[in-house]
Computed example of a mutant assay.
Amino acid sequence: MLEAIASILAQTRSVDQIIIWDDGSEDGTEDAVAQIEDRRVQYFAATNAGKSAALNRAMQHATGDYIWICDDDDVLVEDAAETLAGVLDTEASIGIVGGSYTRFSDGRDGRQRTGPGYWPDLSAGPPLRHLLEDIFLFQNAMLVRRSCYDRVGPFREDLHRSIDYDMIVRLATRFPVHMVEKQVFLQRKHDGLRGPAAQRHAASHVENVWAKQDAEVFLGLRTHVPLSLLRAMYDGNPETVSRAACLQRGAAYARHGLWDEAMSDFEAGVEAAPETPLAETELSICRRAVSGKHGVTPPPEALARLSLLRRGSVAGRDLAGGLGRGLLWSIRRAASERDLRETLRLLGLLRRTGLRLQSASGGAREVGPSLRERSQIPAAAYDW
């Protein structure tokens, strides 16, 4: 904790207020904070109520226009505040600014650094699309206008994990996110048991734990991801844009294992233009739907609905083929990891999707309409 606080105090752009909220810890936090002689540091102790409750209560004491939420075991780069605040100072239309990070662990051989883990290609598509597909932006790497938090409401106190993901998506569907190409903090990796005391899990099981919690988060976010906002991601004829928006939301839900919601969006997308072939941009959406980091597990009901779509229209056939192309990525990953059982399971799924993108007459697939994914969403689209 002291290293984290020291990295805040050492910022090249001074931080006006530092709130330390002690959520019922028993590790000597109060004594450690007492050693810090800086008028900006404000310490609050409370009975344990969980991270979301702690953040909500701490927010009530924050007086600044910009909010920066930092975990107690990570370390900030010394010019992070200067980098992030500089964007908000000069760009009034931007509500959230974020940067990248590096992971590290401390061992007998000193501090070892690794890459950030999952990191999308931010040169293609707006940050919101990438956030819907997978979390890559963290609170330590974000500076947010206080007015943005006020608009989206408090952190969900019924969540045990993925609290930051829920809030980040809620923010990003209401305000533009600007990413800087700079590392702003170091994230500490842990090898022991993780999570709230009542729900401890080994670090080796972290992916399964987070995948389940992310799915719960996205069930609650359904009304926070309107199709009107996703339509603004694309430029093309109205029917194709509407279809792409449905496919994009469906892809996000498929990547989080929520196949009932995903199939509802896929079906609505196909219905928007059933006999129009999918554009290359739409096929890319379909490929991403089944190439996420948490794997592919569509239930039998989803496969049955997909089979009906595949047989029912040109767009449905292309959708199934696009999903099949995405499955190839997952198959290659499983094979490279020498996971024979997973490789065979995915090959079975691949067969059911109808991989071959061909026309009904057996020739080459008909080229779909022109559709462009925007790098930025127009500001007016956030007013939904």
Results as ranks from 00 to 15, higher is better:
Gly50Val: 04
Ser307Asp: 14
Leu219Phe: 03
Thr29Trp: 08
Arg161Pro: 00
Leu371Arg: 12
His224Met: 09
Ala46Glu: 15
Ile19Trp: 09
Pro300Tyr: 06
Gly98Ser: 10
Gln112Tyr: 06
Glu366Ala: 15
Ala124Cys: 07
Val97Gln: 06
Ala289Glu: 06
Pro274Gly: 05
Ala262Asn: 05
Asp235Ala: 10
Val225Arg: 02
Ser93Glu: 15
Ala34Leu: 13
Asp27Thr: 11
Asp260Lys: 13
Ala49Asn: 14
Asp158Tyr: 02
Ser370Cys: 04
Pro277Met: 07
Thr240Phe: 01
Ala198Thr: 10
Pro277His: 09
Leu186Gln: 15
Val15Leu: 13
Val87Arg: 10
Gln376Gly: 06
Gln139Phe: 08
Arg338Cys: 03
Val177Asp: 02
Val206Thr: 12
Ser375Pro: 00
Arg161Ser: 07
Arg129Ile: 03
Ala32Ser: 12
Asp89Val: 03
Arg352Trp: 00
Leu227Val: 12
Gly195Tyr: 08
Gly236Thr: 07
Leu55Ala: 11
Glu267Met: 12
Asp73Met: 10
Arg332Gly: 08
Tyr253Glu: 12
Asp134Lys: 12
Gly324Thr: 07
Arg194Lys: 15
Gly192Pro: 04
Glu3Gln: 12
Gly98Lys: 06
Asp260Val: 05
Gln358Glu: 10
Gln358Cys: 03
Asp318Gln: 04
Leu306Pro: 01
Arg372Ser: 12
Ala320Leu: 08
Glu3Ser: 11
Asp72Phe: 01
Glu3Pro: 00
Leu88Ile: 13
Ala379Asp: 14
Asp22Pro: 02
Gly107Glu: 07
Glu157Asp: 10
Asp22Gln: 09
Ala53Trp: 10
Gly115Gln: 14
Trp259Met: 06
